[in-house]
Each structure stands twice: as C-alpha cells, then as structure tokens.
Design a protein around this nucleic acid. Structure first.
Lengths: 341, 341
DNA sequence: CTGAAAGCGCTTACAG
DNA sequence: CTGAAAGCGCTTACAG
C-alpha cells in the first residue's frame, strides 16, 4: 500500500507538520531522536511523496520540457540524451516533445507542456516562414510564466537566453578551408528557407567568399531541408553549375551530396570536395571520412541546462545568449581542385 | 492570470460541480444554454485544468514513461520518436529516461517514473548479467501498480506483455542468406553477453548452421557490445579465423566490420560478405549498401503503445507477447564466396 | 436540473 | 520543541 505523510505521522506519533519538515530538510527545531525515528519509518515504508500533492502546493514539478524538431536525426538525438543526462543528474525529469519540424507543433507543444506543469523549457525551434504565426509564437513565449532557453536555433525578434554553436562562423570556417585549398567555384547547400541556423550558416559562406573577393553567385546556392535526399538533389544542381567544391549546411545533406557525386561516376574528393556541418558519428566512418564543422553536442546540452537551471533558481536572471566556437575537422573529403597544382 | 474552475463557476453563476461535469463531458443533466455558456467562458479565459489537482484526485496523469538503453543509437531514437508520436496523438505525454545500457539505471528509472506518477510504462531493458539484481528487478516489476510493456528486449523469467521483432528468426534468415550464397565459414558478431536480444539473434545463427549440417565452431563467434568499435575488433578476430562471411548482430557493428575489412586492404563483398541487423538509415547509403535484417521501428512503437493503451483502459487484460516478422533486405554487401563459381 | 461538501496528500504560516 | 488548520484546484458521491 502507498504510504503517506499521514501514515508516518501516526506511526511516529507526531504531527504531519513535523514529518513534512524533517523529510524535506526544512529549517526546524525537532529533536534529533524524533527526526531520526521519522526518517527511519519513512525509509522502512518506502515513502515517496505524492508528486501531485506536492505540485499542487508548491507549484514546482522538478520536470522540464524539451522540444526538439526531429529526434530521429542523430544530432538532435544526442542533444536530447545530453540534456537528459544533465537534468536527471540534478533530480529533474524531462518530458520530450518531438515536432517533426512543424512550427505549428512548437506552439502546441509549449501549451501542452506548460499545462502539464513544467518548471522550465528548452526549445530547439523549427523554422517558420509564416511571419504571423511566428509573431504569435513570440507573444506566447513572452507571456510564458516559466523560464525557457533557446537551444541550437532561435527566432528573429525573440528575446531569451540561449545557446548555439556560432553558426555563421562555422559556415565561414568551412568555406575558408575550401578557399585555402584553392577552390574558387564553391557551391553551398543550405538548410530550409526561414531557418535561423540555415541562414546563419549561409551568411558565413557568403562572408568567406566576399572576404576572398569572389562575387556571390546565386546559382551556386541550392536550398535543401537538412535531410539526406535534399542534399542529393541540391548537389545535382550544383554539379551542373560546374562547382569544384560544396559546403553542405549539415552532414546529412553532405551524405546526399556524396551520393550525387557517385551517381555521376565521380569521386570525392578527387573530382569534388565536400564539407559538412555537425560532425555526426557516421561522418568519421564514411568512405572517405567527411571534413566537417564539429559541434560539441554535450557542451550544447550542458550549457542549455545550466542556463535553464540558473533561471529556475533565479527567474530574474539576465538573458544571455552563448555562442560556442565551431571546430573544423579536416578529414579526407576535401583536397585541392583538379589541375590546380 | 491562471484561471480555475472556480473562476468559471463564479462568472457563469453556477457551482464548480456543474463546471467540472460539463468541461469533462461527464454524464450530466445541465441545460444546453448553461453548458454552452460555461464552455464559452472557459474558452475565453483559456482555461486549462491544473494537472496536479486532477492527478491528485483521479490518480491519472495522462503521462507514460519510456525507458530506453541509448537514445543516441539511431534505432532507439527512432523507436522513441515512434512511441512519442502514437502517445501524443492519444493525448498522452511521454517522459523519457535514458539508461546508457546500465541495468541499475533501469531500476532507478522505474522507481523515479512511478513516483512521479505515470499511468504506464514501456521498457526496452538493458542487458543484465547480474542474476540477483535481475531477480530483484523482476520482483519490483511484478509489484508495479501501473501496467508496463516490454519493448524490443525482455528479461528471462519476467511475465509481461511485450513486442519485439522475432530476433532468432532474424538471425536465422541472415545466416541462411549467407548459406544460400554458398558460404560455409560464417562468423557471427554477437551483442553483449546476457542481452536477451543478443542471445536470440545468436540462436538464429546457430540454428541455421545446424539445419545446414555445419558443426558449430565457437571460434567463429566473437562477442561485441552493439557499438561500432566492438564490431571492428570482433571482425578482426573473425578474419583471423578465415571466415568468408560475417553476420553482425546489429548494423552499427556491421559498420565496424566494414572498417576492419578495409583496414586489411580487403573489400566488401568481394573478399568478405557482411549482413547486419536493424536496417538503420545509413545502411542504405553506405558503400556498399548493407544487406541486413529490417526492423519496422514504427510498427514496434505502435504495437508497444497499443499494448500499453489497452491495459491502461483494462488493467486485467491478458499478457500477450507479440513477435514481428523480420525482413531480409538484400543489398550489395553480400555475394558468393571467392572462387565458388 | 443544480449545488454543498468531503477529500485527494501535501506545505506552510501561525500559535502555543 | 511541536501541532492544528487552512488551502492548493480539482472530482464525485450525495442530497435536494
């Protein structure tokens, strides 16, 4: 039978107040022997506080919500695992909500989670091209009574703490690497239109070209959706344009680009160099191993949790937005363009 | 300001009883106009029931727990996504708990989730070689007051509903495929010792050899732990034994086997055929694409949810254990052994 | 057709 | 040093 604070009080012959004070370690003036007796009875009966009763009174749940666009993408799966690790170590549970990249689900997930009673929220936003819905979403978030932090992504116009890799710097580093190898006709496969991360990474690409004095050619940019298949299609377009190298805005699309190259009977990196972004586990074992921008998923998860945890304790805390340094991992998918030496 | 049932009652000039009855669609005899008025006021005020108050009274939470060994493994990530999809469609939330393959965390996760108040539980067990802890775990589960179902894996001696692929049949099919190509020296990379799924898959391998009249050679079996690296190491051992083909008990280890083969300067499938198990997304894009046993993750998730949902409505329901049919997907990592034709 | 009231299991001023 | 009591926001017999 489930044991309540009342059962313990009865057995220990004290009031429920006393039991509650002791078991929660609240400041009290209960005598040591009594306190110990209470603790022992609680232990013996396997006492665990009723979560709802506690929540009803304290308004605290020790549960946080995590909203992710797509948990089947390794990057987000690892991110989820990382956040889960940190929050469960701190005694919090995590309710996961998967939006399948649907911004409308972002909205319903926030509502659902808040009604269910979470203490805080971590959100990796889905891209939204719909300006009006996007504005409504910001309004909803602004009125949220629980703290939340943006992870990986962000919404234009939203003011909140958050953490992400420095997307544009990553795009810059990837493109500069290609430039330094001697490439001049460099294509870019972007993430979906309206996606914050996609736009930042593209910006890095554009900046690198500009710095190198290469005029921006829109034909060298193909839009993808961060999925494998779109990388393949986009790469086919770019190959038509005669690019000698491709910066894919994530690894999954880079794999698609490999496929497009192979289908043409070409090889990576001999005929075309490819750089990715994310550094998924598979990128290291793919033949040839993929040169890519590494994101530290565990650091991302840790920082997101820390930002949230700080605000759980002090809701008034200032909103900081952290940007993690990207790492260029040079492997074998990039080399100097053909005939350049 | 958060609006309560009481605020609505006051505004509608009825009792809280009436409001509760209407908003929950309980059998009632409230006049239509009154009912509509209540519904409108609720809507206008954005009323959402307080989860804790409801839970305290009804003992229901509309939340289920999902325990997974490793969400960063694509197979489990997709499984999590699948379960999440079905339960959120049914109005349930899912609390995810990641055990990192640690059976001790299985136990603590169950306790944590139950104390937090879940209506039901889906568990993909981690393997446990420790018989005593395993027995204690079974005892804990037997006394669980909420329904639970086993997903993918299972514990010897436990009686509960569940769903998994027919692991041994999958192992049988994979090995028979190799046999049918003419291979006779077939190695097997198993999952970790004590793992239910690993043992079943190995059993399929052994059965196939026996059926074909090939004596079982323990040197042809190498133990892995379902991770990439262990596949590489195990494959190195097996290659020493002169096998012409390898059945890896999951795709991740099959990728490791590819690596071991390449490191030796050999090729798949010319020098050695490899079959995997799971059919992860990457298996189709790997060069050469991997022949493997396909598991329908979405069906696994759906069945697990259905089994649980049935028991949520009728706890007395009989315990059924469903086994899904494996599918052999033949791609390019397998062919007849060298010099066989 | 509708409401008063008990109770779910806690926490927390407040009183002694 | 310890306890009685109010209250968190609901649901649900029960009474009228």
């Amino acid at each position: 039978m489930k044991c309540t604070i009342r059962d313990i009080a009865r057995e220990a012959k004290v009031s429920v107040t006393t039991v509650s004070l002791i078991l929660n370690g609240r400041p009290n003036s209960v005598s040591e022997p009594t306190a110990n007796r209470i603790r022992e009875i609680a232990k013996k009966n396997n006492y665990a506080p009723n979560h709802f009763a506690v929540g009803l009174v304290t308004k605290k749940t020790n549960t946080i919500g995590l909203i992710l666009p797509d948990i089947s993408n390794t990057f987000f799966a690892e991110l989820g695992r990382s956040v889960d690790g940190f929050c469960s170590a701190a005694g919090y549970s995590m309710i996961l909500s998967n939006t399948n990249h649907d911004p409308a689900k972002d909205v319903s997930a926030v509502n659902m989670l808040v009604n269910r009673g979470i203490d805080g929220l971590i959100i990796a936003f889905s891209q939204d091209e719909n300006k009006e819905r996007s504005q409504n979403f910001i309004a909803l978030l602004d009125e949220l009574e629980v703290p939340f932090v943006a992870l990986d992504s962000w919404i234009e116009g939203l003011s909140c703490p958050g953490v992400s890799i420095h997307h544009s710097k990553g795009g810059l580093m990837a493109t500069k690497h290609l430039l330094s190898l001697g490439h001049r006709r460099i294509g870019c496969i972007t993430g979906p239109r309206g996606s914050y991360t996609a736009e930042r990474r593209l910006k890095g690409y554009v900046n690198a070209l500009t710095e190198a004095g290469i005029p921006f050619d829109p034909d060298w940019v193909a839009t993808g959706d961060y999925q494998f298949e779109s990388g393949r299609t986009a790469a086919q377009q770019l190959l038509q344009q005669g690019v000698t190298a491709i910066f894919a805005s994530n690894d999954l699309m880079a794999y698609g680009a490999y496929q497009a190259v192979h289908e043409r009977g070409w090889n990576v990196p001999e005929d075309i160099s490819i750089v990715g972004f994310d550094d998924l586990f598979f990128s290291a074992i793919l033949p040839p191993p993929l040169t890519t921008i590494h994101q530290s998923v565990s650091m991302l998860g840790e920082q997101a949790w820390n930002l949230l945890h700080d605000r759980l304790r002090d809701p008034g805390m200032e909103k900081e937005y952290k940007q993690l340094e990207p790492d260029l991992i040079i492997r074998n998918s990039t080399q100097a363009p053909k005939g350049s030496c």
